[in-house]
Write a protein that binds this DNA or RNA. Structure first.
Lengths: 140, 140
DNA sequence: CTTGATCCTCTAGTGGCTAGAGGTCCTAGA
DNA sequence: TCTAGGACCTCTAGCCACTAGAGGATCAAG
């Protein structure tokens, strides 16, 4: 286990520049280097990076992940905080789903009502302009 | 109708710096100025900005809006392109909703299984640390 | 010892704004 | 007419989470 960054990338599915970026923002600790200044990683880094990747896939923000990582490192502590982070995130997801669903409805209506004729009869443009007529553009 | 930027902002619900930003990226034409170099807007700008705001609320990207505005300006043209933009956007929204819904399921399971005890028994941390693949899709 | 894949650092760009500094203009009231 | 203070101006930098590219060094196989 003395992996160069490309191998770490392959094993975790996180792109190389992203790994370096995570190091830069302090999400991944700086690993030891070879004499020629190249990063070499061990098993703990693979695990930590997988944790990060999985959290990002679930939509947690970097600041959340920082906290979650700290918690994961102190197994005797209460998990109340982790629960709270996850619950807040769940609420946010629900909010986003609701908002997107409403949007979907409006978009769908818009598309279905489009008569495929000319712009001046197009419901899409009409809805966006939010008044009965076609919008007139002014050159600039 | 010779509105200063703050009044345009009030009438459209678009913040002042955002209006200036839209001008900078060429979404809104540069309006005439007073002798003292302050912007003055007329009715067409109010309408155009409302169009932009409404489009943004529906999640269209600036490049899409640019095209939609152009189309709106040529009322005799076919609305095929507007339809296509809107349909693509709808597909994208559907993709996002599906992805968020899957996520919601996983998060919910995670939170429900958390025993509110110590970190070392916490399902949240455990799931995040897990090497197994639960989610394959990215949360945009 | 050479080749070429991989690695390094650094800067800048992405989208769609938002914040702040430091200064000018406009307008209503005294 | 003066003045106060709110609204306006430009410019730069910051946000998030990366991504792209330049220009060069290192590593491992043959």
């Amino acid at each position: 286990m003395n992996l160069p960054i490309g191998e770490l990338s392959r094993r975790t599915g996180v792109k190389v520049p992203t790994i370096r970026f995570y190091e830069q923002i302090g999400l991944l600790p700086s690993p030891p280097r070879t004499e020629g200044n190249q990063r070499r990683y061990g098993k703990p880094e693979v695990e930590r990076l997988n944790f990060i990747r999985h959290s990002r896939e679930l939509g947690f923000e970097v600041e959340d992940i920082r906290e979650l990582l700290e918690m994961a490192a102190s197994p005797q502590a209460s998990c109340h905080q982790a629960d709270s982070i996850a619950r807040n995130h769940l609420t946010e997801i629900d909010r986003r789903i609701a908002s997107l669903t409403a949007l979907r409805g409006e978009l769908n209506r818009m598309v279905e009502e489009c008569g495929h004729g000319r712009i001046c009869d197009c419901r899409i443009i009409e809805v966006l302009a939010d008044h009965g007529e076609c919008v007139t553009e002014h050159a600039h």
